[in-house]
């Protein structure tokens, strides 16, 4: 299998109050297709920034990021938005579900951008929710779910479009041990059974242990 993610000499500098804050320094990274990689490092090491760059929600200051053969740094905003919708599934630390939508509607949200019919969307959503074990909670609102269940809904939302890559930013950071274990098992299953490439940012060694490979960042450099 070849590299699905190639990060070449990427640097990222944030500018705040006339100060340049370098976060990543000419960093290069390759991730194989079907890989489950954990990015570890202390706070401020740049792991979330790297994840954001790979997911196309931020742009590098210099360097190139090639995902499945496309240099996403060169895409326009609208093209990048469409690319994200088609290729990336997101799992966030705080789930980021829309509180006024049911679990079903939250999972359905990314599919609204697809040409699928209502019936087809329903099948996809039910399949995704079944995969995360929440078929009996479809019509519950986020506030009616536990933290672990919310995160599983978020994972269902991430996989419903069948993305190339799943990026997870501290997916267990806000969960108790049991819920965290469920989420990690789910990610592991997605990787093993569905060959999903997963990039997970975590500072938890236990969570990182579930990944096939771990990379460490320190002050903007891979070590």
């Amino acid at each position: 299998m070849g590299s699905i993610i190639r990060v070449n000499n990427v640097a990222k500098v944030y500018r705040k109050d006339n100060f340049d804050i370098p976060v990543l320094h000419n960093l290069s990274l390759e991730v194989e297709e079907g890989e489950f990689m954990a990015l570890m490092g202390p706070s401020g090491s740049g792991k979330t920034t790297l994840l954001n760059l790979i997911a196309g929600i931020d742009r590098p200051t210099t360097g190139e990021i090639i995902i499945a053969g496309i240099d996403i740094a060169t895409l326009s905003e609208s093209a990048l938005a469409k690319w994200r919708a088609d290729n990336i599934g997101f799992v966030f630390q705080f789930y980021n579900l829309i509180p006024v939508l049911t679990a079903f509607e939250n999972v359905e949200l990314p599919l609204l951008l697809s040409p699928l019919s209502k019936g087809e969307r329903k099948i996809h959503v039910e399949t995704a929710l079944k995969l995360v074990g929440l078929e009996d909670r479809m019509y519950h609102y986020p506030k009616q779910l536990s933290g672990g269940q919310e995160q599983r809904v978020a994972i269902a939302r991430a996989i419903v479009t069948d993305p190339l890559i799943i990026v997870a930013d501290e997916p267990t950071g806000d969960l108790d041990r049991n819920s965290a274990e469920e989420v990690l098992l789910l990610l592991d299953r997605l990787n093993r059974e569905f060959n999903k490439t997963i990039l997970m940012v975590t500072h938890d060694p236990y969570a990182a242990g579930k990944a096939k490979i771990s990379r460490h960042l320190e002050k903007g450099d891979l070590v």
């Binding site: 997911a55 929600i57 469409k82 994200r84 919708a85 997101f90 829309i98 990314p110 951008l113």
Partner: peptide, 10 residues
């Protein structure tokens, strides 16, 4: 939420 929606491609 708007950030999430943008992330999802909206």
């Amino acid at each position: 939420e708007y950030a999430v929606m943008k992330t999802l491609g909206f």
